[in-house]
Structures are given as C-alpha cells and as structure tokens.
Design a protein around this nucleic acid. Structure first.
Lengths: 468, 468
DNA sequence: GGGTATTTGTCCGTATGTATG
DNA sequence: TCATACATACGGACAAATACC
C-alpha cells in the first residue's frame, strides 16, 4: 500500500483539501505513485491523517475531475495510466511583470507629439458622455449579447446622419457596425472572397488597409494618385475588380476626387462587375465650405461599400466604425456571415445612440470642425513662418494632418532622430508609399489633432531649430 | 451666355446659397448646362439675381470643391467635362425608419428566455463599474489610440490571474486582447495560414468557431466527443495539424478532459508539428471543487493557444477576450500582424484593469460561482421534478447551461414552437452537431444565467405543461 | 504692340437673425 | 434675461487676366 504523508497544516493559507490534493498530485506527477496504483481508501486515509472523510473525498474528487485518478465504484481509487515519456510539467516562475511597465503610456519622452489620430483632449464632452453612459448602465439592456449587426437603433440614427450630412441614402439593414475600419475590411475581404483576387489601392495610401488585403489573400495593386485622386488609366489597365479609395480626402495627401472622376470610377466598377470600397474616414473635417457628399451618394449602380468611423471625429478609444453594404454583398452577409458576434461594446453603442438622438453629435462635429480648422491654420502658418522655403507642404487639405517635404538630402530617419533630440515626435510618411522612389526628398507626417495651438507653434519652432 | 434662373426664396428652409448650388448642380447633371460652358461671372449673376456677390461665390465654391466646375482665376468659371451617359443620381427618399423598430429589444414576447450567454442581471456591480469608468474617463489616456495588443497593464494583470487561477504561466507579451473569441480566432486563422489546411473540431461543438474556420479557408474535420472529450484515434486518423478544443468544459456537453487525454493531446500536437486551440470560455464556473488547471498550464511543448473571455463571467456587452500565443505564433504576430489596430475599447480595458487591480474580479468570480451553482441546482431539480422520466439530462456539468434530450418522437422545432406558446424560449441544440443523426431524440439547450431561481422553476414547469 | 480701362476671382471686415447656455 | 457664438448675407478692396484703343 502506498503511503501518503503530507504535512497538513490547518493554519496554512490553503484549505486542508487543497494541501492534500496538491501533495498527492505531485506524488503522481513525479512518478513516486505509479499509474495503476490503488490509493488508500477515503476512510483509511482520513483516519490516518486525522481529518474528516469529506476532506479526503474532496481532494480525491478534484483529482478525478482532472483525470489523475479514476474511481472504480465499490472497488477503490486508482491512479490513471499515463504515458511516462511525457515531460513533467514545470511551471516557470512568473516574472514580476514590472519590466513590462516601460511600454506603458507613462513613457513620456516627447514634449510635442505630432501623432496622427489623436484628438483634441479638451473638447471631448467628458461629463456629458459619462452621464449618458451612466444612463445606459442603469438600463436592462447591457446584460445580454447585442445584435450582431450592431444595435438597430444606432443603425437607424446612423442612416439618418448619413443621409442628411453625407448624401448617402441607405437602410439600417445594410449597415454593419464594427470595431474599427480594419476589422470591417477583414469581414469585407471574407465576403468578397475569391471573386476578386486583385485589389487596387491608392499609392500613397493607408498602409493599414493594404496589409489587411494582403493578409486575406488579395493581390494588392498600387495605383498612382494625382491631384484628382486615383489615376484611372492605370486602374483600367489592371485586372482588378475591387478598389479601395478615399475620395473625400485622399489619405494621406488630402486631395478631393472631383465629380467627373467619381462617375468614371463608378462606371469602371460597373464595367468590370466589381466593387469600390469608399473609406470616408475623415470627411467631417473639411474646412472650406460644406462637406462634400460621399461617393456612395451617387452610386446608382450599387457598387460602393461605404466605410465610416467615429475614431477621428469623436473618440478613438471607444472603437466604433460602420459600413454600408450594397445589395449583392448584403445578401452574402445575411446568408453566410450572420453568426459573427458583434465585436463592439453594447454600452458604447447605446451611449452613442443617446448622444446622437439628443443632437449632441451634430453639435460636436461643428465644434470640432472649428477647432481643427484653427489648428490647421496655425500649423500652416507656423510652418511658413519658421521653415519657410526649407519645406514644401505636400498635403494640406486633409483634415487632421499635414505632410511636409523637407528640401534636404537627408533620410527621414535622421530627421526623425534629430526631432527626437529636441523632444518632438514626427512620423515618417514613406510607409504610405508602396514603391518608394529612391531619390525623393524626405516626407514627414504631422498630425495636429492632439496638440494645442501653442504646442503646435512651439513644436514647429523646435523642429526648425533642430533641422535648419 | 447660359441663363441661370432659379427660384430663390429667402423664406425657404435652405439658405440662398444652398438653393442656388442645388439648382445649378442639377442643371449641370441633367446636361442643360453642357460641359465646358463658361458660367456667368459672380458679379453678373449676383446683380441679376439681386443677391450678394458672396452668396453666388459660396455656391460656386461648393461646386468647385466637388469638382462640378473649375475656376480659372480672373478669367471665369467653367463647367467640368463630364461623361453624359452616366445615370442621373437620384436619391431615394429615405424611409421613416420606424418600421425597423420592431427588431429592437422592445419585442418581449417571452416570459422566460433560456438564452445561452445571458448573465445574472442583479449581481453585476453596476455602481462600482460606473465609478471605475468615471475614474478612467477623467484620466488623460482615453484620447488616443490604445496599444495594439491591448493595454499592457491589463495584460500584466491578466497574466497574473491566469497564473494564479488557471495554472497558466505566460508573459504579457504573449497575450493579445480582442473583441470576442470569434475575432481572435479569425486573427489566429490568418496567422496559422496555409500551414494547417485542416482543423479538427469537437462534434458536437461551438458552431461559431466552426464557421470562422470555414470562412478562413480551413477544412473543418468534426471529431466525435465522448465522456472524456475528443476521440483521439479519430484525431490521429485525420490529416489535421490544428485542433480546436474546450477541455475544461466541453461545449456544449460539459465534459472535462482528464489529464491523461490532455497529455496525449499535447503529444499529438508535438507529433504532427501542429497547434491546439484551447477555448477556456467558461472554466470559471466549475461547481465541484476547485477550477481545473487549463491545458495550457501543462503545455511543455508550447503548442497551445489559450483563449479566455469576460463575456460569460463579467459582462458580455463590454466584449473583452484574450488569447495567449505560443512562441512560434508570437513571432509571426510580431512580424506580420502588428499593424492591426486594437478593436477593444480602451475605456473598458482600463476600467477592467482597475477592477482587477483592486481585487474586485476575484471576489466577483467567487460570488458568481455561488449564484450560478445555486441556479444550476435549481434547474436540475426543476427538470427532475417537473419532467422526470420524460427527459434525459445530457450535459449537466457545464457552467451556464444544461442540455436535455426529450424522449419524444418530435422535432426540436415543434418543441420550440410549443414552448413559445407558453411564453418560454428554448434553443435547439442540433446546430452544435455537424452530421446530425436522423433518428435522434430532440435535444434542447437551456441557458440559465439570465433567469432568477424562481423564473427557472416556473419556466421549467411551463415547459413541462406545454410538452407532456 | 503696348498702355489702359474693365472684368474677373478672391479675400476681408461686418451686420443680422438665431440658437445656446 | 443676457451674453455669446454661429451661420448667413452683404459690399468694399485687391490683383490678375482680358479687352480695347
């Protein structure tokens, strides 16, 4: 008979049955108690250890649940046969985790961060948003899974907004809510599937979209961009049947696609029996005149997938984007993709719903447009004043960033490093190009959404001192 | 010279410049003003229409921005060349959207809904969660994009939890946060790619996972499940190198995979040089003894991908799940998938972080385990009392649901319909099987998380009256 | 052909009614 | 109620392009 002699201690942090369980488990794992062995009966062991029968029973039960031992009723408990060529499981002692904290947001080595995608910190209506969130949390709706396409009420509100502000007429049924443009693009890739093995993308263009297409098995065809947007002859020459474009504000250059080219683009899609993906990521921030209607608004052929997001215009951290599908893709979605659970927080969705229903959204857009227009102006003036003829402003009609070309024979890396030395973070723009020309002047992206007007001016001044 | 004769009305809902803009745009789109035409100068038109020059100017500016007309400074404004075979854009009048409201959560035709995935409404610490959310909202961190893998502090906290409670020793770097199991599975499919063309899944098993695998191009191989979990001989016969399993609580039957089979499963993965995906979706709710360590905890070969979620144990609507990658996949992730933006709300992540750091999470788990154990007991008793010999309880060791087999020659649909008539919603369990046997008794899934103990008992009583 | 007057798009400051808080 | 901000509308000033002598 195998002996079981654990050191049971009633004052130990773990209860008795756990101590017993851990002890026997270890004995089995190390092989001291070989497979097939009959363990002491519950009665014997409990009286030997002077603990209650239930204590032993619980420990045995736990091991049974995990499969270490087997019960043969009215016969005994036996250690399960294990393959002994299996390496003994050895838990690494887990590290203190403190070493990872350096990655956290506490690392503030930069005074001015011209990050793209940050928003104005002071103007987000924190109090209001919190109040609405509380209102939502008090409701009964947050304890179950949400609707898979996204909350219907929110989709209704979004459809209204799209009609009134972007000229897009769609039904809430066509709309799918998702956690960011990339996630929606992924779903879209699955839906379009192998019908379109090549996808045309703008060059320069959003690298995040390119990556998605590539990962989902598409051949990515970069198409040159000029002041009017995509170069159509190149598009026709390609064998693509799918194109990803940013017509309202070409990313990153900020160009607007004129109506004539929009129509030709739609005709292309009809001709090749394909689709156009319109990423309307930052159309809200057009500073000259009224916002331009979306491409989807004149999509008589029903070939445009419209993508919109709240990351730029409201708050990037709530992660809400949406997509409007044409009929053909909607059918596919309803048939094959309806079992996908919604990935966006229902709480945030319902909060946004209230925010829109009560009219705060429209107001917020107007307010932010003014604020960013002012910042945009300040940035342009600062560049002109402090840098003058040393740089060209390449894309300046875009909403929340500006691209400058530095007239120097230096690499972008060295300029970024020089900027870092004076506490300014700027970003390389070369990743937006697919086939970078070698002898091109370095181009840098300056996002200004998260900086105040003073910070923008000081930041540019520092940059100028560092570079020129 | 082209004549422009709009009916401008100062009392119209739209301002003058919009009316003029709409009028001229239409004239161009219909072709009455042909491309290339020179438009009346701003002064001429303003004096003719008796409006300010700026009114005309603003209208022209808007059309210029959209590309309908072009300006040659100090020379005139000209209509852009357009293809005239393009169909005139015609906005459908948008529907009132009221028709869609019926889909909303207001449709409460059921008194008792045995939905799977709902949680206990009364025990979620709403006030605390709100307080923590407010705390997070007051911080400076929510105005920018979050870390792509998920907030590092949260990952640190999660790694600690996994080590202490699930026996999984991992570094926060191996962990990726995502908006639900399905989203993470999708990412995983992309990472594993064509290395593993077939994936073994449990039969019965989680249909949502099967669908993902199929969509991402995998051949899905259903493997039978017995009381010990996956049938290993079948697994060996298949040509799979990837297996998706739920060892702690087989879904939907609730079986626990014993340690011997776990080791054999790991050896299989090592032998075929493949991976095991362990979906630990509801391990927190084990009612007999301590929770069983995860398969990942004994993964000496580093071949297990661990998936966990807060949907069941905390709140489904915040949508936070996580995944622990083995070294081989982590490398791939870092190299090829690092540009994916995080899809989970940073606000929720930081709130959860506080929730865990302050020890509420552990307390909450313990509390919920008690509550659900009680409900589980009530449900089992109610079934025994009200239905007795009319049903078999098939899976009863699972956490938040029970599967019953009704000993009748009826279809699941007819039983569901009969239940609906008495205001009870139950769910078909057949979708969890891949190849359904024809002459099988109907099986139904009863989720009990969202119902109170009284509701559970009454619901079962109603069901019994309706069926027997 | 060159100088000049006119026309043109563009930019600027300002007045007014309305909505907001 | 008052103060503020905003969208809209207005006319003047400027400089470049054009037409005319």
């Amino acid at each position: 008979m195998i002996e079981i002699t654990p050191n049971l201690n009633k004052n130990h942090k773990d209860p008795l049955y756990i101590q017993l369980y851990e002890y026997i488990k270890k004995e089995i794992e190390t092989g001291r108690i070989p497979p097939g062995t009959r363990l002491p009966s519950i009665r014997k062991l409990s009286s030997y250890l002077r603990v209650s029968r239930n204590t032993v029973d619980t420990a045995y039960q736990q091991m049974m649940a995990e499969g270490y031992i087997e019960s043969r009723p009215r016969s005994g408990l036996f250690v399960t046969e294990l393959d002994d060529d299996f390496p003994v499981s050895q838990h690494k002692e887990y590290t203190s985790f403190d070493e990872y904290r350096e990655y956290g947001p506490t690392a503030m080595e930069y005074t001015y961060d011209f990050r793209h995608g940050s928003i104005d910190q002071d103007s987000f209506p924190t109090t209001l948003w919190r109040r609405l969130t509380n209102q939502v949390c008090n409701g009964k709706d947050i304890y179950s899974y949400g609707e898979r396409q996204g909350e219907i009420e929110l989709r209704i509100e979004l459809a209204k907004y799209l009609y009134q502000s972007r000229g897009v007429s769609c039904s809430p049924e066509q709309m799918i809510i998702g956690g960011g443009i990339q996630q929606l693009l992924g779903l879209l890739c699955l839906m379009i599937g192998l019908d379109g093995q090549s996808v045309a993308v703008e060059n320069p263009g959003y690298d995040g979209a390119r990556e998605i297409f590539a990962h989902y098995g598409f051949q990515v065809e970069p198409i040159e961009v000029n002041k009017n947007g995509l170069c159509l002859p190149q598009l026709y020459q390609s064998d693509c049947r799918l194109a990803y474009v940013t017509p309202s504000h070409q990313f990153p250059l900020g160009y607007t696609m004129p109506i004539s080219k929009r129509m030709k683009l739609l005709q292309w899609a009809e001709k090749v029996n394909g689709f156009i993906i319109e990423d309307d990521y930052d159309s809200e921030f057009r500073y000259k005149g009224k916002p331009i209607p979306a491409l989807k608004g004149i999509d008589s052929f029903d070939r445009v997938v419209y993508l919109g997001t709240f990351s730029k215009s409201l708050l990037p951290s709530i992660r809400i984007s949406y997509m409007v599908l044409p009929e053909a893709l909607l059918k596919k979605y309803k048939r094959f993709f309806y079992m996908y659970e919604q990935a966006v927080s229902k709480i945030h969705q319902l909060t946004l719903l209230l925010f829109m229903q009560q009219g705060h959204w429209q107001k917020h857009i107007h307010k932010m447009r003014k604020i960013y227009e002012k910042k945009h102006e300040v940035l342009r003036k600062a560049i002109k004043q402090h840098m003058g003829e040393n740089v060209n402003v390449v894309g300046e009609d875009s909403g929340l960033h500006i691209i400058i070309e530095v007239k120097r024979e230096e690499t972008e890396e060295s300029l970024i490093a020089a900027a870092k030395n004076v506490g300014v973070k700027v970003y390389s723009a070369s990743k937006f190009w697919v086939n970078q020309k070698q002898n091109k002047n370095p181009q840098l992206l300056l996002g200004f959404g998260g900086l105040s007007e003073e910070e923008i001016d000081c930041g540019i001044q520092s940059l100028s001192n560092a570079w020129f």
